[in-house]
Amino acid sequence: MTAIKCVDLCKNYEQGDVVIKALDHVSLDIDAGSFICLSGPSGSGKTTLLNMIGGLDKLDSGEIDIDGQRVDQLGKGPLADLRLHNIGFVFQSYNLIPVLSARENVEFVMQVQGMTAAERRNKSLAILKEVGLAGMEDRRPAELSGGQQQRVAVARAIVSQPKLVLADEPTANLDSNTARQLMDLLRKLNQHHHVTFLIATHDEQVMEYAERLIKMQDGKVINDQLQA
């Protein structure tokens, strides 16, 4: 079943007199529960595509449909609601709130969603245990390693059961061993929670995990294939 449908996406950026085609007529169908990697060199349009699907930036033209909702037609408020309830984000540099503990970082979004304190606490403790951070719930980001911080970020992204998780270079700041552990975790969560993962990367090791690998270059999809 198609979870995300992208039709003819175009986005140009102007740098002085030069127009850069960040997305050049990109069309994609992404099935629910799939585990997909977007690969390509820097500037190929991976991050721009994630930003467009996540409603963080505006398209010049094209259509994005997530579960029947036209993302490209939503205003700021509904877009924020869509992200809050349906999309989880994992960033390259973790981006946790430094003054909150691991558990509080995970709870923060749930609080905004309006969950009760007890519900938040149960869910955050369960997800932190699932990502291997049991016993570290009260540590602040500065007291955790890079890999552990990224696990907290993953827990934050997945805790409220979004339909889609967008991860932008999630392993870029991790050593290869930690990166592998993180990818094992993401794959496990994908299978366990049936959440769709769309991961932008240029790390070969990460690509090995993909069910489907989409290669991009100069804002275009140049290869889209299923992997064994």
Partner: peptide, 16 residues
């Protein structure tokens, strides 16, 4: 600014 950008990306509204 960066932190607020991330929080906004997570779906928290500017009002909050």
């Amino acid at each position: 600014t960066r932190e607020f950008g991330v929080i906004t990306a997570l779906g928290v509204k500017p009002r909050k």
